[in-house]
Write a protein that binds this DNA or RNA. Structure first.
Lengths: 230, 230
DNA sequence: AAATTTACTGACCAGTCAGTCAGTAAATTT
DNA sequence: AAATTTACTGACTGACTGGTCAGTAAATTT
């Protein structure tokens, strides 16, 4: 495995960005920057066209190198795919971990902070593409899907579970099936991301901010105790 | 274009179902049944592997014919794809149309009936695969995605819009951004279907019935008026 | 039962693309 | 400045697959 410490090298070495210059650019030599440039290009194309329909020539061209160079850094197309997923997961985890740290306030506010934070730091960034990619290719790459599931989804569910149990313990929320609530709370976020990379291009424009506000509003109101129960 | 009136011929002629018989079955001649058999096989494989990764030889084999036969009924791989989508949409529309017809009762009940009905008649059937397929391939087939969007999604949103406006008009629901509510209400259903065809195979088992119950419960409670407003 | 039509087959072709590697040029060392 | 190392290139190949079509056999007509 050639890939390591991809994320750090990204911002360190972006100087020239003449990938698709017509002029035969003087052959650049930037070993450290290549992997992240290649995975970034690959993510874009994988999300847009899917894994099978993406040509490695196109990935290399978008990264401004030849296909041969791609094979200096990744053993195979599949290895490139897994690197894309892995690189997309690490920042997601980092973002998630620092969310719940010592939050003070209502559980409703905590819930809102978690959902908004996820959107700001993952859903609304280019990391969101990873979600669609995993969904689309999970059957072709069950181990990558499993990896994503175990590391991202399970952990994200834990965060929400904590917030929900906290609210129920304090009496702020009514008793509910917590596990189902977790899934119901996450689903609109995932759907919003998926939407942005699929049907969004059919002219339907969902306003993410308004969508999120409505979702959190409905969710919190739905969870809170009230006199007229059902 | 060879494809026409696929849906009608479907139920008309399903008699023998020996697609993957080991014995060299005596060459069958069933012109009318072929198209739907082929689209059914194609749907399965497209959903599982994606369009590009699906071999037409495999589609034909699953339908119990040779690849040459496939080309007697469909002009190209892309034509097959579009037939799959089209055949998946028609029943969805039929199911949707007969939902709202003269419903009596609370708007909450109507909402619940709409969501449950969609799940029963579309999400929980093999038609659900079409949703994942559209999502995954929308960028590769923008016109098919547009078609699906215009005919299925827009119409589905109209049904929900009517239910929500009805509830607001009667005072049962509070004032809200109706358009966002529609999307938030649909998202978990779509996500549930997508889940069943993707990450579901990672060992995570969502109970659809419980998920739906929780979603409807939260949604209705979130929509209803209450004293302690926010 | 001979002739014709119809549904179907599977070997084949042509284009595509993942993966290879001998060669090139920039950088570094001597 | 010569020698060596390193990053990179792009032409090539072999396998694969969408699409074709001459041929076959069941059904139908004569």
């Amino acid at each position: 495995m050639v890939v390591q410490s991809l994320v750090e090298t990204t911002s360190a070495a972006i100087q020239e960005h003449d990938a698709q210059d017509a002029a035969p650019s003087p052959r650049r030599r930037r070993k450290d920057a290549r992997p992240s440039e290649l995975t970034a290009a690959a993510l874009d194309l994988f999300v847009e066209k899917g894994f099978a329909a993406t040509r490695l020539d196109d990935v290399a061209a978008r990264a401004g190198v030849s296909k041969g160079t791609l094979y200096l850094y990744f053993d195979s197309k599949e290895a490139l795919f897994k690197a894309v997923i892995e690189e997309g997961i690490v920042p997601a985890l980092a973002a998630a971990e620092q969310q719940l740290a010592g939050y003070q306030g209502t559980s409703a506010g905590l819930l809102q902070a978690l959902l908004n934070g996820w959107w700001q730091q993952i859903g609304n960034t280019h990391l969101g593409g990873v979600v669609k990619l995993i969904i689309s290719e999970s059957r072709n790459f069950p181990d990558a899907a499993q990896y994503y599931h175990d590391h991202v989804i399970v952990r994200g569910r834990s965060l929400l579970r904590a917030a929900l149990n906290r609210g129920i313990a304090t009496g702020e929320f009514r008793e509910m099936n917590v596990e189902s609530c977790i899934d119901v709370a996450i689903a609109p976020l995932l759907m919003l991301v998926i939407w942005r990379y699929s049907l969004c291009f059919c002219g339907n424009d969902i306003d993410p901010a308004e969508f999120l506000r409505t979702h959190v509003d409905l969710l919190v109101n739905g969870l809170q105790r009230k006199e007229t129960n059902q």
